[in-house]
């Protein structure tokens, strides 16, 4: 790990300013992704701004009937919150399907959204990787790509976004609230938070330097049957090959977001319109334009089957 200076901050404004005005600064929340990457010198911040003392760790009801989730709420606490379990079961289920008990106790809402890909070449600093080292090439295209994306990819990068929680947040239309270094606030729909790789796979989200996530807001409960189904290589403590987060209403309409197949949680309103017509119809629209590799083409079938299982479960 490279040397860095360290600072604890106690106000949101101070945090954003510190991160924007200090060269090479990064926020650290749970640290479960950032430290992992710092040990491998994939992330090399020269200054860490510890945001754990900001008090952004409560879940509050909004006047609109939804919930405002503080950026520092731990994954365990969010999954266990009574209101989330009752009204946003999809979110509880997605969180509980991720990582381990120990990791969920540290991992935060904001950190989870911004966690980086698990592409094996991103982690192997001896291999070319456009995301880690822009312009060096993508080793995954002709390499091990079983875990990687089939839609939203580019010639430069086929990394998948590893978060389970983000898939639920996408299906639930969450909005990310931030404060920028100059103190101005903005609200970013989760659909717009992550960027597709294009020619710049190292740029993964729309946040500016020093922009701090303060909360994630859920609109009023979506109702319906809420299901999260994760398919992975072992039954627990493994990232998704494919995951489906769905809200299905009694009349067969609803929403679907899919994880493990794209650089961001994947959702498509045109595909959702097909929900009443069954999994095949939905999958066809969701995966339109897919560019799988030989190693991950199985995901196209797996998405359809996982969707099918979810629709059966929703009927009860």
């Amino acid at each position: 790990m490279r040397a860095f200076s360290y600072e604890r901050v106690s106000s949101i404004e101070a945090a954003a300013r510190a991160a924007a005005t200090t060269d090479g600064a990064k926020f650290i929340a749970g640290g479960t992704n950032l430290l992992d990457l710092m040990k491998l010198e994939i992330e090399t911040p020269t200054h860490l701004v510890d945001v754990n003392g900001l008090g952004l760790d409560s879940i509050e009801a909004t006047p609109e009937g939804g919930l405002r989730i503080g950026a520092l709420v731990r994954n365990t606490d969010l999954a266990a919150d009574e209101r989330v379990r009752r009204d946003y079961a999809l979110l509880s289920r997605a969180l509980l399907a991720g990582a381990s008990g120990q990791l969920r106790n540290r991992a935060t809402t904001a950190g989870n959204l911004l966690q980086r890909t698990r592409c094996p070449y991103f982690y192997d600093t001896n291999q070319p990787c456009n995301k880690r080292q822009p312009g060096s090439g993508c080793s995954a295209l002709a390499g091990f790509s079983r875990q990687l994306a089939v839609v939203g990819v580019s010639d430069a990068c086929i990394a998948s976004h590893p978060s389970d929680m983000a898939v639920a947040m996408r299906a639930l239309d969450a909005v990310v609230e931030t404060v920028r270094a100059d103190g101005t606030k903005r609200s970013i729909p989760i659909a717009d938070l992550h960027r597709l790789p294009g020619d710049t796979p190292h740029v993964e989200h729309v946040l500016e330097r020093g922009e701090l996530i303060t909360a994630v807001v859920l609109p009023k409960p979506a109702g319906g049957e809420q299901i999260y189904r994760k398919v992975r290589d072992r039954a627990s403590y493994a990232f998704a090959l494919v995951s489906v987060g769905a809200v299905v209403h009694p009349d067969g309409t609803g929403r679907v977001a899919v994880g493990g197949i794209a650089p961001k949680p994947w959702r498509d309103e045109a595909a959702e319109k097909e929900l009443a017509n069954g999994a095949k119809a939905v999958a066809a629209k969701l995966l339109a334009g897919a560019r799988p590799t030989e190693q991950n083409a199985f995901k196209l079938t797996l998405v359809e089957r996982a969707l099918s299982a979810v629709l059966v479960e929703a009927k009860g």
């Binding site: 510890d50 120990q102 990791l103 106790n105």
Partner: peptide
């Protein structure tokens, strides 16, 4: 795994100064 304020965490993925 150790307990911090009673909760289990991975001590390898957190900085002591935190």
């Amino acid at each position: 795994t150790v307990l911090i304020d009673g909760r289990r965490v991975n001590a390898c993925l957190t900085l002591a100064v935190m």
